[in-house]
Write a protein that binds this DNA or RNA. Structure first.
Lengths: 255, 255
DNA sequence: CTAATAGTGTCTATTAGACAGTATGTT
DNA sequence: AACATACTGTCTAATAGACACTATTAG
């Protein structure tokens, strides 16, 4: 049957929150938000950074393929994952006609025990955006990638935007996939509890607020944040020292 | 390359609003909400109703394939369409390893000029649901399909549910696809303007409210609805007689 | 007139933004 | 004591639900 000759891949956007010391600042670690990328080495996109992904086997579902790739890259299982969408431009892959289904996973990077592959690297994400554009900086220890998107308002009542990539600093169409993942993550962060998948078991409200701010790319109002979050968390009655001043209470997610 | 042997199809959930006279009631036509199905005739699912769909050609994107199939079934172009998700159970299609990407389209059935294919049929949708289950009746002139879903609360803060199909009255995994489309439509109806894609150019507020009620499967409060909708519509200053009583104003969508 | 549908007004409860103010630790 | 961070309280604006109320027309 002539139609059975598509290649199918999954690509997975592994968003992480990392907690580590900023050398310029005294006190406790800070939070960083980012994404795992791998460097291509055997293709026309040689040396381009891309989202981790791979071909789907004939005997597995898309979700199973995605879990397999996630485990291969991070050695993690039982990770929060959701489907983002299918990408199918005819010339998106030079190896042939390949469609890709993108997934988004959320991990707490501090939980990682095993090292990632030598071609992989964690890139912190920094936003710089306004109503017309969104610039994204992806930064690891040695490299800095600048992605630029034009924002087009598509629905004024819901303030929904289309993002059109104007750069070409990731391989394949992965700039399109990444921005779709970010938009999806931001929407869900505001309307569900998925942010807790990025947190350790116990955390302070200040840390949680930092995570929301990193994802949304803007500062939140303290009292409003506490109000919204207070029904979702439960105190452990343990306190930790933070930043050298008043200790803060550790909370858990109330499921 | 051994991986290049997937079949890829698109399946499209064509939701419609129809306006037609209910024989039991005097006065103006009523609104009906439903979905287009086609009867299989050449497969293991012979005589099962399924969503219209077809194989993606090697030289077209998923979106292009979906538009082609939509045009074939309804002769409509320029229809509001969005991607719903990819479905990939290994045994979902007996013809081989086929994954399907589902789309959702919204049409105003009264705009249709051309007849649909002889294997296709419009099925009105009726909901009967509570917190634990959702029963869906699909009704055309001669047949009635009952779909039953178990509802599982997955996120109490956002009141988000999983729907697990307990019936097998559509072919393939199309019960799964249909419920995902309905959930997606309901979410978007509440947070965007997509419902206007189901309306004619001019409509009364009462008609618009009916459409929202049909999709959401529940009655809305009149004054609250008018408050929310009033910034999205603009009066044409034309009035029509409705139901034999006070005339109502015709409005247009304010883009 | 009555019945039926169209459309308005208003009270209340809930929630978000803004921001002042209090609490408790380190240095 | 000074200051940084944790945390609370309160005013206001916006919005949704509930429901009573008025308006207009057919019969």
């Amino acid at each position: 049957m002539k139609e059975f000759k598509f290649g199918v891949t999954t690509d997975t956007i592994i968003f992480y929150i990392d907690s580590r010391k900023n050398n310029n600042v005294r006190g406790l670690p800070e939070k960083y938000f980012g994404v795992l990328l791998v460097k291509m080495n055997n293709d026309v996109y040689k040396d381009k950074w891309v989202l981790p992904g791979g071909f789907v086997n004939m005997d597995e579902t898309l979700e199973e393929a995605n879990s397999r790739i996630l485990k291969k890259e991070t050695n993690l299982t039982d990770v929060y994952t959701e489907q983002i969408g299918a990408f199918s431009k005819v010339d998106r892959d030079s190896r042939g006609r390949v469609i890709s289904i993108a997934f988004m996973s959320l991990i707490d990077k501090t939980k990682l025990k095993n090292n990632i592959g030598e071609n992989a690297s964690w890139f912190d994400i920094y936003f710089n955006e306004d109503d017309k554009m969104c610039n994204i900086k992806l930064v690891n220890d040695t490299e800095k990638l600048n992605l630029k998107y034009k924002k087009k308002l598509v629905d004024k009542t819901t303030n929904e935007y289309d993002y059109i990539s104007e750069t070409n600093n990731l391989g394949f169409d992965h700039e399109d996939i990444l921005i779709k993942g970010i938009v999806n993550l931001r929407k869900k962060v505001n309307s569900s509890d998925i942010a807790f998948n990025l947190m350790p078991e116990e955390f302070t409200i200040g840390e949680l607020k930092q995570v929301y701010e990193l994802i949304l790319g803007k500062k939140l109002i303290n009292s409003a944040f506490r109000r919204v979050i207070k029904d979702k968390i439960v105190s452990t009655n343990n306190y930790i020292k933070t930043g050298g001043h008043r200790p803060s209470c550790l909370f858990k997610y109330k499921k």
